[in-house]
Write a protein that binds this DNA or RNA. Sequence first.
DNA 1: GTGAAAGCGCTAACAT
DNA 2: ATGTTAGCGCTTTCAC
Lengths: 351, 351
Amino acid sequence: MVDSTPDAPRRAVTLRDVARRAGVDVSTASRALSGRRRVTAGVAGRVHDAAESLGFSPNYAARSLRLSRTMTLGIVFGQLTSPGLLEFLEGLGSRADEDGYSLMVTVARGGAERYRTLVQRLCERRVDGLFIAAPPELGDALRGLQQAGTPVVALFRHGPGGDDLPLVTASEEEAVRQALRRLRELGHRRLLYLGIPAAIPSVRLEWLKEAAVGLGLALDARVIGHEESVTRLEARLREALGETAATALFFEYSEAPRLLGALRGLDLRIPQDLSLVVFGESTWTIELGPPLASIRHDLQALGRIAAQMMIERLACGPDAELPSVVEAGVGEWVERASIGPAPATTRHERR
Amino acid sequence: MVDSTPDAPRRAVTLRDVARRAGVDVSTASRALSGRRRVTAGVAGRVHDAAESLGFSPNYAARSLRLSRTMTLGIVFGQLTSPGLLEFLEGLGSRADEDGYSLMVTVARGGAERYRTLVQRLCERRVDGLFIAAPPELGDALRGLQQAGTPVVALFRHGPGGDDLPLVTASEEEAVRQALRRLRELGHRRLLYLGIPAAIPSVRLEWLKEAAVGLGLALDARVIGHEESVTRLEARLREALGETAATALFFEYSEAPRLLGALRGLDLRIPQDLSLVVFGESTWTIELGPPLASIRHDLQALGRIAAQMMIERLACGPDAELPSVVEAGVGEWVERASIGPAPATTRHERR
DNA sequence: GTGAAAGCGCTAACAT
DNA sequence: ATGTTAGCGCTTTCAC
């Protein structure tokens, strides 16, 4: 049923097969199928029928070779950790898909060397465009791409040493300002930021500092280790809150489980004793316990935007330049029940 | 620095360029670079130098065309929701990567029709192997792949109507049995399973039922809506616990935030009043609140196994058959503080 | 409107 | 050991 000639060769049907079946030349079949050039109605019909009945599926490698474009976009991730990356990927993928582009996804997982290897491989694959998340120093791994005029853009942020690529990212500046303004309005004067070293935070910290200075708020920042236990964090937290007398706490989504766990041990009421703001969100931060106020992104939308930019760029031809930084997405301040008026005296002062 | 001839053509360097520069024929250059056939040391050196200095990157489309293999694996996801999919993807991708395969990732996001479209596209891309997560009825979308002898495997489970593909999945049978045995040991006799309709649960429910029957435990199962609010769930939960007098509750990771939120409103002590077991886990279920006992998978390992199977199959040639079901991963029972001895009388009986 | 022919970049027979 | 030749499947001039 699936195959009319049961012992057909283990070989894909080619355009040649279709043409033969339709009684025309391959070139005619090509035209009929691509529809780009006019063909007699009868011929077109026969060709389509033949293709249909043979189960013809055009070979993209051949087409790519001829057309010098693969209709493929590549992406290199550093690591697939944050669940936000799935949303991003979904957005990017679906937008690309709409214009017929497929996505090659790779994960570096290692150092800069791995990044370079993957970039090389994607270059061999002749992707039409390449995204690199938080790119490190890439050296001459980009050479092939550059020679071919393939656009390469950095995603989210630049990694150490890799700041020579146009960047597509979401800006949180305004959202951070809004959050701080609101907290100030609620009487908060001293803020604390807890983050892991050398990740996204650096930029966030800049924004936080800037906004805090602008509004006359005190901001302390402390680094917490990636692996510190909940009990350890509890002590750290107690100490940090004691020393800074902060009434509002900022932290990263990735640290939220441990931090919230530690917070429980401290017997603080949220938000009466302490207001909480998290960078990023998910059902966990919203549905469980006090809904956490957050500075979030629509990462799916950001993905779509990144894809769209690339596609437009591709349509413009190789000579169009990419702007060096595109703040494509916009961070959003979402107020929720985890923030409230600052306590008159902090818990620690009370003691 | 990057380019010795500043106004070089916007064109990738080809093997021909390398050969010319090295003063040899393209075929010789090909041999020297592939290293598959012996070449004089001097020539090899010159060719490599030329390739190096020109920044040569072999065109995979051309190679694919010639070799009839793309060194590309395709994967179709239904949706990119569960964070576990990232782990899976990472495992699959890294294993594939080790053997030089790249990964084309697509997301159906829609109904069976979208699946078919993506399968078609991946077929045109001539992937060497294809994974489809929870495939629905695919109809003749698989024809091209079949004709070409491309292996296609289903992942996780079969979707409605799509049960004609070899399946790679993880079995939880034994883990479920262990969990129930342990609960029985702790005095539990009545269990409750809360799940969303038409997702993974169906299989899980089978396993649960089977194990429960085998151990003489009572098992009730209730469906909860995908969108029910926490307060609504609270009522549902109260009702369900009241009616079944269950002392242990099973639920899915995806429902955990809402369910745990609802549980809080019920003023139950975990595990004194109720024991909890979740299918799947993350830092959220471990670090926050009472660590949840779980039936989990190492999805990254499963991904690696799936990739490995495919690669081996590819090495065997197109005539090797895939076994129809491979339970490649093993679910694991992990006991944590969320389970404890069954209460002498259930909370509701006490009232 | 259709067929003939060339060629995208590469590899593998075959010849030398 | 190296060069010559053919061809993977497709699109696109170029004739007719």
